[in-house]
Design a protein around this nucleic acid. Sequence first.
DNA 1: ATTCAATATGGAAGCGCTTCCAGTTTATTT
DNA 2: AAATAAACTGGAAGCGCTTCCATATTGAAT
Lengths: 332, 332
Amino acid sequence: MATIYEVSALAGVSLSSVSRVLNDHEHVSKKTKEKVVAAMNELNYRPNTIARSLASNRSNSVGVLVSELHGPFFGAMLSSVELELRKAGKHAVITAGHSDEESEINGLDFLIDRKCDALILLVDAISDDYLIKLSKGNTPFVILNRNISEISDHCFYLDNELGGYLAAKYLIEQGHKEIAYISGPLTKQDSTERLTGHKKALAEANISFKESLLYEGDYLTKSGRDGINYLIKHKTTFTAVACSNDEMASGAMRGARDHKWLIPEQCSFIGFDNAFFTEYLYPQLTTINFPVNDMAKMSTQWILKNVYKQKELDIINMFIPELIERQSVKKN
Amino acid sequence: MATIYEVSALAGVSLSSVSRVLNDHEHVSKKTKEKVVAAMNELNYRPNTIARSLASNRSNSVGVLVSELHGPFFGAMLSSVELELRKAGKHAVITAGHSDEESEINGLDFLIDRKCDALILLVDAISDDYLIKLSKGNTPFVILNRNISEISDHCFYLDNELGGYLAAKYLIEQGHKEIAYISGPLTKQDSTERLTGHKKALAEANISFKESLLYEGDYLTKSGRDGINYLIKHKTTFTAVACSNDEMASGAMRGARDHKWLIPEQCSFIGFDNAFFTEYLYPQLTTINFPVNDMAKMSTQWILKNVYKQKELDIINMFIPELIERQSVKKN
DNA sequence: ATTCAATATGGAAGCGCTTCCAGTTTATTT
DNA sequence: AAATAAACTGGAAGCGCTTCCATATTGAAT
């Protein structure tokens, strides 16, 4: 593997000059540049990224840390973020945290140690305090799907409360009064916010919120099914169930069907996120849209602006959910 | 940020000694080791991974290149690979190739330039020749879901033909004779192999394969729906449809339902992969299991054995698909 | 022609670590 | 106690690049 040294020898110029053309510096004469480029081609030269990082303390790459690598929401977000970075000519270095504080911090250190120019974090186990402290460090970062007020300009998030509100309001407008709710883990910010929105809509319609109609799931498909079974076992009655994400809604529908319920005739369902598969469920799932791509795009714009000083762009931190009306809710 | 130099000064030993304890070398006295560790703790020392890579030409990380970051199959594989590596104390550096040859090669170079100790490749745009040439280079790698005979010991793949065969055979056993087939892109190895297996089962049962009942999809959900529409538009008749993956099966069911067909009463469906969501479709999808986790585990074992010389393990390159019987196929 | 600034180039130090070699100390054997 | 091997330690070069500083060259302005 040829080095910058061999290139300089072949081109008959100094190391510094080669380095300059490599980095697109100003103040390099056309002639030297041509000589160097020719030499590079002849030697099939490829710069050693590691050496560059060590000497310059930069890497031209952005670290992405996600709590999970799979699942419709994380998958879509990951994919979208990577695509946006790629468009901007930056490489994404992706790693996973598994929603475990130690692993997440470990992943964070890994990316920082690798001298990523910036980080994109989609994590939930690392504490607010830790992130606030991190913001005083040298590696700039943004946080997705989470709002920490002390550093909210680094955060990109959905108006979850509005989303929860919209879902419940729609069910109420369709004539439902007894509405069960399957939430995500109530230790997580987005879960509690969505539930708050739900309650707000009920209150506005003078419907009292019943604890007995609440089941705390974990955002995974299975817990939707568990939720339905729990509600049925406890002999609660309801005509609709709102779920804190689409996967649980899908699980809940499966659970309802195990009990021979007709959907939506006997029970309506509404999800959250508008994951790609919701359109392919039967019946097609009515849900709340989470503008994943917009958020991904905005977060990379923040980085291009603040880290790479590329463009002067307006940054929006909060995104607005919207109702997607399909066929899983019937008029009551 | 403290360096090895400061540690050596504080501990009163040489740079080399510090490096030795850092790398768990033999021949370091207990006393020196203790002094060094104490100094490291006091200074809150964190090794600079970049510098280590430059000096040693290693990185203690494994590069993972996938064509897509999302989707049930890629997501599951990615997640599983990462988990196995993590268990083995290796870090995964993940990047995406977007099924485009230039991007994939670009991603490959990125990982090689970053001195990954080994690579795990789940790509389909890079040519066999390129990979064969790559196998003569310095970075060891394995290839998932693809078999290149010249380097088949680096390859981990499913017996796709058997899978296709199993699916068709099951449909035939259930009394189906007119079976439509929605394939993946026929430029891809797995697609054609699955189709070959399908044809083989038909032939064994003396059922002739009709070109008119074949639709070439692209493995995405939408193309399953398109396939059904195409088949209906061309006035073909069939009582079952076999799909080359679960997403297309899900799309096909949706398409059938758009035409008010009852599933499985009027038409049976079978998928491929046994993606997590198939259990939550309605009706639950009968499909062929792809042992994603086993493959992921085996590929990291190959790396632990061949690159990190950790264990002496048996390596299996070909995996066996199995029928998962659920409710989307009825007796005819 | 002379001056001065702008532009272009080379030299050399240094980024933080690994690793080879040589030298020193300790333990083991006779 | 001497001889030998084994265990341990330090010095120094070097991984491939960037970047600061100093010097050389060019061109424009007087």
